[in-house]
Structures are given as structure tokens and as C-alpha cells.
Design a protein around this nucleic acid. Structure first.
Lengths: 229, 229
DNA sequence: CGTAGCCTTGAAGGTGATCAATGTTTGTGG
DNA sequence: CCACAAACATTGATCACCTTCAAGGCTACG
């Protein structure tokens, strides 16, 4: 059994392959290889030549860019079903615009650029689906920009909500990934200490709860209030 | 002569139609109408149903989103050749994600969603070109996020440089649009006063020069220095 | 001639960055 | 199995940058 066949049931459950027949999915993912990443392992490095792209199967990857100074800024959290680097495959000489790093043990279906150019590219419907994912990601970036003037607590609240929404299980208000305070700070463009002070406060008030870096929202109403005040 | 025929020579000079035969361009833009906007006139309003999209012919449009409070945040400056709202045309029930407002007198080729669904959508190469524009825009947003921790002067410097680059005339370091201090502030997520203080300083030092809201960079080296310090 | 939008300057005050020190957990190698 | 390093979490103190508020000048336009 090939890698792709092993993952086919996961693949067809993702929006990008929604309603796509299994046979076509197998064609599109021909030669694909399942990569298992351990915590903090790098999948792609910003600036490298982009010869492969792929789909997150399980776990999560953070997409980050280094700043002129040493530290990193996280631009996106990629969870299962997310496509990584597909946007740039059509470029003549593609370079990864971000570094992708595993957050906890994760799995990724890696596909070659060749298969994109020969199979994916000729399918307009598929490209539009990728565009839709890209569009979602751009909306998140835009929303982030809109919040730029808001004080930090509102921005943290906004981030937590945006990560919960992905999960769409309305009952369970647990973030679907392990998230350190540092990563929150790196995503919001602030300092770890400031994030800690805010979230400690919320913990004391019983608004949120953290267990082994997994954050659970106990009082979503309070979070929404905080975001809009 | 139809609107489209009047603009055909402008259209084929834009990257999106680079190497595309005139006849195909005419087909793709069938039924298009040239809209002339005056200063501060709204082209699209955030939240409205999206029945048309189009291409900026001349002048410029700012794309903004209202914040929970009254004020707006500018997410992008669209200059000639830029496509507006094409990204969302393929969605089943598209809504404009931003408001588009003319900055000074501008012209826009407006195309119906129908022509997108019937003509554009079936052309994979064209969709990939749109994706490339979208990708450029996302990179700008990501770069903005990377600068989030930098002090304001560096962010202003970064904005000026990113707007100059578009123009690619290496000799002429004049921004290709009229830009108020307020708009700079609204784009960077800061206050007008802070932007003014920084730019007044630069003017006094002879680094930049403003004439009727058109900004010229006299000492690009200094700006680059400021950005990386 | 009055209004609207933009630019400018000053003063006061707060949010959050930075620095420093310490505790906690996890993973690694002897 | 223990020692040690590395990554993460926490708390306090200081201070700079930038926001906010207030007031006034300038130009364009009906």
C-alpha cells in the first residue's frame, strides 16, 4: 500500500477534496509521501527552493518568518486539511516564503512540484479551491491588521476565537493545538511577558484554563466581551 | 467603440494580461464598463453582495475595513493593473471583504461576475495569474506582520519602500499616488500625530519631500538604514 | 464665507517593552 | 537513575514610545 492510499480517507474528508472522486484524488496525489515530524522539526525553511508542497494530515505546523533581528514572527497556524506552499508552485522559480515547523508530533502528505504542474494545474476547479484557502488565510491577516490599534488583551482574545472557530465543534471550546505563550506573542507581535500577564489574569478569573499547553475557553462570552470593548 | 476597446491598450500592458492575445482579452472583458471615480468616491462597500469585479486602469484605490470602533484600517493600496475582488468571484455567495475608495480621480474597468464564471474560470492559466497577484498581496500583509514589533519609524520607512518598488523606475523615487499622513497612519495602525512627527523630522533632515500629498524620497539610503536599524 | 479635510505642535499619561531573576517541566546523555 | 541543559512559565521594576486630548493654521471647494 502506498503512502497516499494509507491517507486517502483522511484526504477526502478535507474541504479541498470535498466531492472529489477517490480516483481523482489518487491521481492528484500520485507519488505522495507521508512525512512524520516530531516536535519543533522543520518541514520547510524560508528562502529554500520550493520543490515540494503538501497537505497537513494531523497535528499542526506553524508558518513563520525571521525578522531582521534574531527572533521569528508567526504568520499562520496550519492545522489538518491546510495546504502548504501550493500557492507558489506555479511560479517559475518558487522559493518558500515562510518556515514551516511542527508543533508537536505531526503528519504531512508531501507532493512533488511536478505533480502540481502536470495534474493540479490543469484542473480549474481545484485551483479555485486552493484560492479559496488562500483567501481565508488572507482574511485572517487582514483581520489581524484591523486589530492592530486595539490593546493587547483584545488581540489575544481575537486570536483565541479565530483558532476555535476552525474547529467548528460548538460544544468543545478547546483549542485544537498545543500553543505556548511565546507562540502567542510571536503571532501577535508582542512580548511573552505581556501575554502571560493577560492570560494569568484570565485564568484567575476562570475565563480560561491551560493544561499542558492546551488552552480551553471556559467563558466564551467574556472573551467576546473583551474583544469588542 | 465599446468601453473595453477604449482601454485595450492599457489592459495588455498589465502583467495579468501579459502575452495574452488581444482577441482573448476582449472576450474576457466583454461587457466591461469603464467607471470614473472622483476623489473619495466609494467603488465597493465592505459587506455588500459582490456582483462585479474589475481592474484598476489609472489613479489608485484604497482598500479598507471598518474597525469595531468608528475608524477605518487600510489593508491595501491598489494601483493600475491591480485586480479588485476577482479572488471572491468563484464563491457561491460572494461578499466584498473590504471597502474600495478612490484616492484622487481614478478609472476602473468593471466586469460582471457572470463573465468571470463563464470565461475567466475555465482558463487555468488566468486563474494562476490572479493567484499570483493574490500571493503578492499576501506577502505584503505578511511583511507587515513581521514589522509589527519594530518601532514606528521603521514601519513608515518600510511602507514607503514597498510603495516605491511597485513603480520599478529606479531613477524616480516618487510615490505613484497621493497619500495623506492620515492614510499612512490608517495603514500602519497608528495615530496621525505620530506619523506627522516622524515625517516632519525626515523632511527637516532632507530625507523626504512632500508636494501636494505626493511624497518623494530624496535619500533612499537613509530610509533603508532606518528600516534595518 | 463657512465648512470640511488635512497638517502641525504641545502636554500628559498609559500601555507594553525590556531587563533581571527564579521556578517548572521536559528531554538528553553519562 | 541522576545530572544537566533547554525550553517554557512567572513575577517585579523601570522607562520609552506612542496614544490621546486640545488647540490652531492651512487650503480647497461649494
Amino acid at each position: 500500500m502506498t503512502s497516499v492510499e494509507a491517507a486517502i480517507n483522511e484526504l477526502i474528508s478535507f474541504p479541498i477534496f470535498n466531492q472529489v472522486p477517490k480516483s481523482l484524488v489518487l491521481e492528484l496525489c500520485e507519488g505522495g509521501k507521508i512525512i512524520t515530524s516530531s516536535h519543533r522539526e522543520q518541514l520547510y525553511r524560508c528562502g529554500d527552493f520550493a520543490s515540494t508542497f503538501g497537505i497537513v494530515l494531523s497535528g499542526a505546523y506553524k508558518l513563520s518568518k525571521p525578522t531582521p533581528m534574531g527572533d521569528d514572527v508567526i504568520v499562520h497556524f496550519s492545522t489538518p486539511g491546510d495546504v502548504i506552499a501550493a500557492f507558489i508552485m506555479a511560479q517559475p522559480n518558487p522559493i518558500y516564503p515562510v518556515t514551516a515547523t511542527a508543533m508537536g508530533p505531526s503528519r504531512f502528505l508531501r507532493l512533488s512540484r511536478d505533480i502540481f504542474l502536470s495534474q493540479w494545474k490543469k484542473n480549474p476547479d481545484l485551483i479555485l479551491r486552493i484560492q479559496s484557502l488562500l483567501s481565508t488565510r488572507m482574511n485572517l491577516l487582514q483581520d489581524h491588521k484591523v486589530m492592530a490599534r486595539s490593546p493587547l488583551p483584545q488581540r489575544v482574545a481575537s486570536l483565541l476565537l479565530s483558532l476555535i472557530d476552525k474547529n467548528s465543534d460548538t460544544k468543545d471550546l478547546t483549542l485544537p493545538l498545543r500553543l505556548t505563550r511565546r507562540e502567542i506573542a510571536e503571532n501577535l507581535g508582542s512580548s511573552v511577558e505581556a501575554v502571560i500577564r493577560i492570560m494569568s489574569d484570565w485564568s484567575k478569573q476562570g475565563i480560561i484554563q491551560t493544561n499542558d499547553q492546551v488552552i480551553e475557553v471556559l467563558r466564551p462570552d467574556k472573551i467576546v466581551d473583551l474583544m469588542n470593548s
